[in-house]
Amino acid sequence: MIKADRIFGLVMMLVALGYLFSATHIQTSFLSDPVGPRIFPYLIGGGVILCSLVLVIRPDANAEWPGLGTVLQLVIALAVLIGYASAVRPLGFIIPTAVAAGVLSYQINPKPVSALLTGVGLSVGLFVLFKMILGLGLVGFPRHWF
C-alpha cells in the first residue's frame, strides 16, 4: 500500500515548486536591502523540498485512515462548515447556526429530536450570550426581514 507520508511529501514538493516559482515574480523596488523580499521565501521553499524528500524516502508507518462511510461523514461536516461560513453574513446568525449545529450534533449522535433541540438551543443560547450579555456585533436575522 502507498504510504500516506509519500503522497503528502510529493504534494508538498509540488506546492513548494509553485511557491518558488511565484517567489521569482516578487517585484523588488530599487530601494531594497541586500537580502530583498525573495531570498527568505527561497530558503523556505528549498527547506520544504528537502523535508518532503525525507518523507518520500523514509515514510513513517501509515495511520489508520477512516473508511468510506466516515469519509462521507467528514465531507458532509466540511460542506456544513463551508456553507455556514458563507451563509452567516447574508442570513444572520440564528438560522444558519441552528442548521449547522443541528447537523453536526446529528452526525455525532444520530437522534433527530435531540439534534433539533441542540441546534435551536445552541443557536438561541449563543446569540443571547454573545449579543445580549457580551455585546458582540452579531445580526440575528436577515436585515431586510424587519
Binding site: Y84, L122, L126
Partner: peptide, 28 residues
C-alpha cells in the same frame, strides 16, 4: 454529552472569527 459540546465549541469558533473580521473569506 459530546453531541451538544462539539457543535457548541465549533459555533463559538465561528462567532469569534466572524465578530473579529466580519468576513466570510476569513471563516472559509
Amino acid at each position: 454529552p459530546s453531541h451538544i459540546l462539539l457543535p457548541g465549541v465549533t459555533m463559538v469558533a465561528f462567532v469569534g472569527i466572524y465578530s473579529l473580521t466580519g468576513s466570510s473569506y476569513d471563516m472559509q
